[in-house]
Simulated scan of single mutants.
Amino acid sequence: MQRIEHRACFGGWQDVYRHRSEVLGCEMDFAVYLPPQAETGARLPVLYWLSGLTCSEQNFITKAGAQRHAAEHGIILVAPDTSPRGDDVADAGGYDLGKGAGFYVNATQQPWARHYRMHDYVAAELPALVEANFPASGARAISGHSMGGHGALTIALRNPGRYRSVSAFSPIVAPSQVPWGEKAFAAYLGEDREAWKQYDACALIAGASERLPLLVEQGGADEFLDTQLRPQLLQAACEAAGHPLQLRLRPGYDHSYYFIASFIGEHLAHHARAMT
């Protein structure tokens, strides 16, 4: 593992590391914010942030303003890339499939299956790496935006007991029913829609063995609200299953990082309460 960026930030350090991922079969970059409490020798909780389409590890650390709140609460922030990278990694040449669009699934179809195993990378390999190399306590939370919000919800639902809390901004809650998800799932998982359900938050809710409360932030002026996000589907699924959900619709806010930056402090406080 090699540190490739190192910047002082709110009394702590915003770093970026590069490592060889055995799960993905390529070199991967991930960002780590170590708050000032890391200097004391204390073991700290970790929030994993999953970004959306076209993003890398850079978007969250440069636009969200989360470090200030992480420093206040003593939380380590970890932000991985959104897909495998490299010259030998399959790509589709568009923004919504291939590099930058891993959808946090384990692909089963070629040519994607060789590298696109982002679920296992986020849920298992990356936390093991973080907990072996940083002052992490083992208390974990997960959050994300858009495609990453989908990833946060599904990874938390698929891995009961692994996370203390989960939240999402503008998540794709029912990828099996919207164009972004249908395109990606058909490519990565094949045409059998039954196989898609294992990565669809709305489908997973009914059989969830853990009733981990979901916190979902959604902008009312989001340009993708009615076509790609459709939070009312998650609300209906949670009501039917008796699953706790706090869905907050914020009038006037769009799909951008202006929205995330406006409410990331509330989410960090939410996760801090759950992890400490």
Results as ranks from 00 to 15, higher is better:
2 Q>Y: 15
3 R>M: 13
18 R>D: 12
23 V>T: 06
25 G>P: 11
26 C>Q: 10
29 D>N: 15
29 D>T: 13
30 F>D: 05
31 A>S: 13
37 Q>M: 12
42 A>S: 12
47 L>D: 01
50 L>C: 09
51 S>F: 12
57 E>C: 14
60 F>K: 08
62 T>K: 12
70 A>I: 04
73 H>D: 14
85 R>G: 10
86 G>N: 05
87 D>I: 11
93 G>N: 08
93 G>Q: 01
94 G>F: 11
99 K>I: 06
110 Q>A: 15
112 W>N: 01
117 R>Q: 10
119 H>F: 05
126 L>S: 07
130 V>Y: 06
131 E>V: 11
131 E>C: 09
131 E>D: 14
133 N>R: 09
139 A>R: 08
142 I>V: 07
142 I>M: 08
148 G>M: 00
152 A>L: 12
153 L>C: 05
156 A>R: 02
165 S>I: 08
165 S>N: 04
169 F>P: 03
173 V>A: 09
174 A>Y: 01
181 G>H: 06
184 A>D: 03
184 A>K: 06
185 F>D: 02
188 Y>W: 05
191 E>K: 15
192 D>R: 13
193 R>Y: 11
200 D>C: 07
202 C>A: 12
203 A>I: 07
208 A>F: 04
210 E>Y: 03
210 E>M: 05
220 G>S: 05
228 Q>S: 03
235 Q>L: 11
236 A>D: 00
243 H>C: 10
245 L>M: 12
251 P>L: 09
251 P>V: 01
251 P>R: 02
251 P>C: 09
252 G>E: 01
262 S>F: 11
263 F>I: 15
269 A>D: 15
276 T>G: 13
276 T>L: 14
